[in-house]
Amino acid sequence: MEIIIRNSSDQPIYMQICEQVKSQIISGALAAGTMLPSIRSLARDLRISVITTKRAYDELEAEGFICTVPGKGCFVAEQDLKLAQEANLRRMEEHLQQAAALAKGCGVGKEELLAMFGLLLEEE
């Protein structure tokens, strides 16, 4: 498992952890049944707050990405990848909607927006 915390990022630390773990689960880098480090050891190794780490794990658990077995630890849950993929598509749509609304609000036209998006995709 790889997690990189960026203090400069606007995204809250717990979300950074969530996102990175999720994407590794979806990409298959973290297979179902893999044991995750305990909250305390992850907090220590990432040098971040225990509370934040716990919040990230809680979030991941609530979304069904991981499950906690009391007394044993946290494990990557069996994933319905199709479902996860759908969730991702839904989120993409949301973000694009936001971008569209913002563009409309400040008078950026369709062509300009599409060009911008094309540029972004090429950069990747």
Partner: peptide, 12 residues
């Protein structure tokens, strides 16, 4: 030293 303190609280 901060690492030592982090190690200390690894025990809940």
């Amino acid at each position: 030293i901060l690492d030592l303190f982090r190690e200390f609280v690894a025990d809940e």
